[in-house]
């Protein structure tokens, strides 16, 4: 396996579904980071076979709801002195604001300027959300 130096202080985002690492990388704007970051794709995982990982040698603010929305199986490890001091398991957030767009052309979100698209979790098992305004269904898997 490719060796990536362990980090002394920072964040490791682990157990990302293969293929989703790049999306999170871009969402967190890590391509523009001025600190050390690593995107590891298709690493072997005991749990899932393959996984993506992101290592960030810095302390940054993470939108955990957003990460949970992209992939609820992600684990976020907070590292200090080369040790994991906190392990955060994510889940689907109850609400998602400003991340996805309502696709209903009759929805008020299609007309008003400055309106934040808001979704509410409808079915946790299937990962189904509905638009807070028009009730249009949104599922991450499409």
């Amino acid at each position: 396996m490719l060796n990536i130096n362990s980090i002394t202080k920072g964040i490791v985002i682990d157990h990302i579904k293969p293929g989703y690492g790049i999306r999170i990388f871009e969402y967190l704007k890590l391509d523009r980071a001025n600190f050390t970051v690593a995107l590891i794709m298709n690493a072997t995982s005991r749990k899932y076979g393959r996984k993506d990982m992101i290592k960030i040698e810095n302390v940054i603010d993470l939108d955990l709801a957003m990460l949970g929305f992209i992939d609820p199986n992600i684990t976020v490890n907070i590292i200090e002195d080369e040790k994991i001091i906190e392990k955060i398991n994510l889940s689907l957030p109850d609400r998602v604001e400003g991340i996805i767009q309502c696709k209903n052309p009759r929805c008020i979100t299609s007309e008003e300027r400055g309106i934040t698209h808001k979704f509410v979790l409808l079915d946790e098992n299937k990962g189904i959300y509905k638009c807070e305004y028009c009730d249009q269904i949104y599922s991450w898997e499409g």
């Binding site: 209903n104 009759r106 929805c107 008020i108 979100t109 299609s110 007309e111 008003e112 309106i115 638009c131 807070e132 305004y133 028009c134 009730d135």
Partner: peptide, 10 residues
């Protein structure tokens, strides 16, 4: 009353 769905909620 509004032609767009969800307008009163907003």
């Amino acid at each position: 009353r509004h032609p767009k769905e969800g307008a009163p909620k907003y």
